[in-house]
Amino acid sequence: MEAALRTFFSSPRFAVAGASSDPSKFGHKVFAWYLLHSLPATPVNPRCPSVNVLSRSHTTVPGPSALQSPSETSLSVITPPPVTLKLLKEAKEAGIPAVWLQPGSFDDEGLAYARKEFKAAIAGMEPGTDGLASVGGEGWCVLVDGERGLSIAGRKWERLKL
């Protein structure tokens, strides 16, 4: 898992599929996490042209293929399992190198596809793989394990204070 975290956080850009303006949704919380850690992130949401997060409007893109530099972007996925597989196929075709499937975002088929097709695939329900356990009881989650992942990747970050 350490290698996957290093690969994921070595990308110069990030995107959050399932980003939302609703603060109760995990897509909102994960997108805010990237912003709070001063990481360049793009919200992905085909149903709305922008999302409001941290008192600011952020323009969305409809899918991974619309990202500015997909081959330099790691993708966090917070979508329902039936949407996730289609999204992963588009991400693969666009050249996304690494994905982080948040807990509840994937089924067996989506997980198998992600593991086969990406340089790195971090999945939300695999605590303890490769000798590195997730901190949270739900498994691997950016909100819980992201800072440790940034440290493993040697990425300098500073958490913004609001």
Rank of each mutant, 00 (worst) to 15 (best):
P12R: 10
P12N: 05
R13S: 06
R13P: 00
F14P: 09
A15G: 11
A17V: 04
A17H: 03
G18N: 05
G18W: 04
S20N: 02
S21K: 08
S21F: 11
P23K: 04
S24Q: 09
K25M: 10
F26T: 12
H28Q: 06
H28A: 03
K29N: 12
F31T: 06
F31W: 08
W33E: 06
W33M: 09
Y34P: 07
L35C: 09
L36W: 05
L39W: 12
L39I: 11
L39S: 11
A41K: 13
T42M: 13
P43W: 08
V44P: 01
V44A: 02
N45A: 00
N45M: 00
P46M: 01
R47Y: 02
C48R: 15
P49V: 01
P49D: 03
P49E: 03
V51F: 00
V51Q: 00
N52C: 03
V53P: 01
L54Y: 01
L54S: 02
R56E: 03
S57D: 13
H58P: 05
T59F: 01
V61M: 01
P62I: 02
P62K: 04
G63T: 00
G63M: 00
P64G: 03
A66M: 04
S69P: 01
P70V: 10
P70Q: 08
P70E: 07
S71A: 14
S71Y: 02
E72L: 13
E72Q: 15
S74V: 07
L75H: 11
I78A: 14
T79I: 08
T79R: 09
T79Y: 02
P81Q: 12
T84C: 13
L85M: 12
K89G: 13
K89M: 15
K89E: 15
E90D: 15
A91P: 09
A91C: 10
E93G: 04
E93W: 02
E93M: 05
P97L: 07
A98C: 12
A98W: 12
V99Q: 09
L101V: 06
L101A: 04
P103A: 10
P103I: 09
G104A: 07
G104P: 05
G104M: 09
F106S: 14
D107Q: 07
D108T: 11
D108I: 06
E109V: 15
L111F: 04
Y113Q: 08
Y113C: 08
R115N: 14
R115I: 10
K116G: 05
E117P: 10
E117D: 14
E117V: 11
F118S: 13
